[in-house]
Design a protein around this nucleic acid. Structure first.
Length: 115
DNA sequence: GAGGTGACGACCC
DNA sequence: TGGGTCGCCACCT
Protein backbone atom coordinates (compact mmCIF):
# COMPACT_ATOMS: atom_id res chain seq x y z
CA UNK A 1 0.00 0.00 0.00
CA UNK A 2 2.71 2.39 -0.65
CA UNK A 3 3.14 2.85 3.07
CA UNK A 4 6.02 5.19 3.66
CA UNK A 5 5.09 8.84 3.93
CA UNK A 6 2.15 9.64 1.73
CA UNK A 7 3.97 11.43 -1.05
CA UNK A 8 1.83 11.78 -4.15
CA UNK A 9 3.56 12.67 -7.37
CA UNK A 10 2.33 16.22 -7.10
CA UNK A 11 3.71 16.66 -3.62
CA UNK A 12 6.98 15.07 -4.55
CA UNK A 13 7.30 17.41 -7.49
CA UNK A 14 6.70 20.36 -5.22
CA UNK A 15 9.34 19.18 -2.79
CA UNK A 16 11.84 18.75 -5.59
CA UNK A 17 11.30 22.28 -6.83
CA UNK A 18 11.41 23.76 -3.35
CA UNK A 19 14.67 22.02 -2.61
CA UNK A 20 16.05 23.43 -5.84
CA UNK A 21 15.46 26.96 -4.69
CA UNK A 22 18.89 28.58 -4.33
CA UNK A 23 19.81 30.35 -1.08
CA UNK A 24 18.90 33.98 -0.94
CA UNK A 25 16.04 33.43 -3.32
CA UNK A 26 12.32 32.88 -2.85
CA UNK A 27 9.42 31.74 -4.97
CA UNK A 28 5.66 31.71 -4.82
CA UNK A 29 3.16 28.90 -4.56
CA UNK A 30 1.69 29.86 -7.89
CA UNK A 31 5.10 29.76 -9.56
CA UNK A 32 5.65 26.20 -8.41
CA UNK A 33 2.11 25.21 -9.33
CA UNK A 34 2.56 26.76 -12.75
CA UNK A 35 5.86 24.94 -13.16
CA UNK A 36 4.04 21.71 -12.41
CA UNK A 37 1.40 22.63 -14.95
CA UNK A 38 -1.35 23.62 -12.55
CA UNK A 39 -1.15 27.33 -11.97
CA UNK A 40 -4.65 27.21 -10.54
CA UNK A 41 -3.65 24.66 -7.95
CA UNK A 42 -1.48 27.02 -5.99
CA UNK A 43 -3.43 25.94 -2.95
CA UNK A 44 -2.31 22.37 -3.35
CA UNK A 45 1.25 23.63 -3.27
CA UNK A 46 0.45 25.20 0.08
CA UNK A 47 -0.76 21.79 1.17
CA UNK A 48 2.51 20.27 0.17
CA UNK A 49 4.26 22.88 2.27
CA UNK A 50 2.07 22.07 5.20
CA UNK A 51 2.73 18.38 4.69
CA UNK A 52 6.39 19.33 4.41
CA UNK A 53 6.23 19.86 8.14
CA UNK A 54 6.46 16.08 8.35
CA UNK A 55 9.26 16.04 5.85
CA UNK A 56 12.58 14.91 7.39
CA UNK A 57 14.60 16.61 4.67
CA UNK A 58 15.73 20.20 4.91
CA UNK A 59 12.84 21.45 2.93
CA UNK A 60 13.35 25.21 2.60
CA UNK A 61 9.63 25.85 2.74
CA UNK A 62 10.53 29.21 4.29
CA UNK A 63 11.67 30.24 0.82
CA UNK A 64 8.15 29.77 -0.48
CA UNK A 65 5.79 32.66 0.02
CA UNK A 66 2.63 33.88 -1.58
CA UNK A 67 2.43 35.94 -4.75
CA UNK A 68 2.69 39.13 -2.74
CA UNK A 69 5.90 38.10 -1.01
CA UNK A 70 3.98 37.86 2.22
CA UNK A 71 5.04 35.16 4.65
CA UNK A 72 1.61 33.56 4.68
CA UNK A 73 2.81 30.41 6.40
CA UNK A 74 5.14 32.05 8.88
CA UNK A 75 2.71 31.27 11.63
CA UNK A 76 2.90 27.61 10.65
CA UNK A 77 6.63 27.54 10.98
CA UNK A 78 6.41 28.23 14.64
CA UNK A 79 6.90 31.90 15.32
CA UNK A 80 9.49 33.87 13.45
CA UNK A 81 11.40 30.81 12.32
CA UNK A 82 10.49 31.55 8.73
CA UNK A 83 11.40 35.22 8.82
CA UNK A 84 14.57 34.60 10.75
CA UNK A 85 15.65 31.97 8.24
CA UNK A 86 15.02 34.30 5.33
CA UNK A 87 17.08 37.01 7.00
CA UNK A 88 19.82 34.44 7.47
CA UNK A 89 19.68 33.88 3.73
CA UNK A 90 20.24 37.55 3.19
CA UNK A 91 16.64 38.34 2.38
CA UNK A 92 15.23 41.44 3.99
CA UNK A 93 11.92 40.80 5.67
CA UNK A 94 9.80 43.54 7.13
CA UNK A 95 6.45 43.01 8.81
CA UNK A 96 6.23 39.44 7.54
CA UNK A 97 6.80 40.71 4.03
CA UNK A 98 9.83 40.22 1.80
CA UNK A 99 11.58 43.38 0.69
CA UNK A 100 12.75 43.59 -2.90
CA UNK A 101 10.65 40.54 -3.54
CA UNK A 102 11.03 41.08 -7.25
CA UNK A 103 14.82 41.00 -6.87
CA UNK A 104 14.92 37.80 -4.86
CA UNK A 105 12.08 36.14 -6.69
CA UNK A 106 13.11 32.83 -8.24
CA UNK A 107 11.00 31.41 -11.03
CA UNK A 108 11.50 27.63 -11.50
CA UNK A 109 9.87 27.68 -14.92
CA UNK A 110 12.39 30.27 -15.99
CA UNK A 111 15.60 30.00 -14.02
CA UNK A 112 15.68 26.24 -14.37
CA UNK A 113 14.92 26.59 -18.03
CA UNK A 114 17.85 28.86 -18.69
CA UNK A 115 20.55 27.90 -16.27
C1' DG B 1 -18.80 7.69 1.30
C1' DA B 2 -19.33 12.68 1.33
C1' DG B 3 -18.51 17.33 2.71
C1' DG B 4 -15.68 21.08 4.29
C1' DT B 5 -11.38 23.17 4.71
C1' DG B 6 -7.03 25.42 3.17
C1' DA B 7 0.51 28.31 3.88
C1' DC B 8 -3.29 30.89 -3.18
C1' DG B 9 -4.34 32.76 -7.56
C1' DA B 10 -6.79 34.61 -11.29
C1' DC B 11 -10.87 36.33 -13.22
C1' DC B 12 -15.14 39.12 -13.03
C1' DC B 13 -18.04 43.10 -12.00
C1' DT C 1 -9.26 51.11 -10.46
C1' DG C 2 -10.48 48.23 -6.56
C1' DG C 3 -13.12 44.74 -4.14
C1' DG C 4 -15.43 40.41 -4.29
C1' DT C 5 -16.16 35.68 -5.86
C1' DC C 6 -14.99 31.35 -7.85
C1' DG C 7 -11.76 27.67 -8.97
C1' DC C 8 -8.08 24.20 -8.03
C1' DC C 9 -6.75 19.67 -6.00
C1' DA C 10 -5.57 17.06 -2.03
C1' DC C 11 -6.05 16.20 2.99
C1' DC C 12 -8.86 15.86 7.17
C1' DT C 13 -13.14 14.91 9.89
Amino acid sequence: MRDEKNNPDFFDQVYQVVKLIPPGRVTSYGAIAAYLGSARSARVVGWAMKAAGSYPENLPAHRVVNRSGLLSGKHHFGGQTMQQRLEAEGIQVLDNRIQHFDAVFWDPGKELWFD
